[in-house]
């Protein structure tokens, strides 16, 4: 971000004169839980994109879901809850665990475990 404005330069009454500039504000900084996307499990249903209360699911030019926008994801977990694939393609981890290099491997294991548990309950 650029240097914060002083009171003389700030628009009167704190008015925001530019549309759509929330993108410039790193609101993901206060996230305490992090969603991990497991691409190989993803069925591209776009439920996560629909349900995300922010705009933290990126979509490429072919209309396919990409990586999370971690600058704006607040870690609410709605995407992980709504993810319908048999083996979840989104798993929530603590921010500290999720930022580690082995996070994706741990997420895959957790997704499999959840799927097995669900199966066991049904059986």
């Amino acid at each position: 971000m650029s240097k914060p404005k002083g009171w003389k330069d700030l628009p009167e009454g704190g008015l925001i004169k530019e549309a759509g500039n929330a993108e410039k504000y790193n609101t993901g900084a206060w996230r305490s839980d992090r969603p991990i996307w497991i691409k190989e499990n993803c069925i591209q249903c776009m439920f996560c994109w629909v349900f995300c209360p922010d705009a933290a699911i990126t979509v490429d030019k072919n209309g396919e879901r990409g990586e999370f926008d971690y600058l704006h994801c607040k870690g609410c977990g709605i995407c992980a809850l709504e993810c319908p694939s048999k083996v979840k393609s989104i798993v929530m981890m603590s921010e500290a665990e999720g930022a580690k290099p082995d996070a994706l491997e741990k997420a895959k294991a957790a997704a499999l475990k959840m799927a097995e548990e669900k199966k066991a309950v049904k059986a």
Partner: peptide
């Protein structure tokens, strides 16, 4: 434009 946006520790006192 946006009226009444959030100003936290970063901008409230300037306003």
């Amino acid at each position: 434009v946006t009226y009444g946006a959030l100003h936290l520790q970063d901008y409230y006192i300037e306003s």
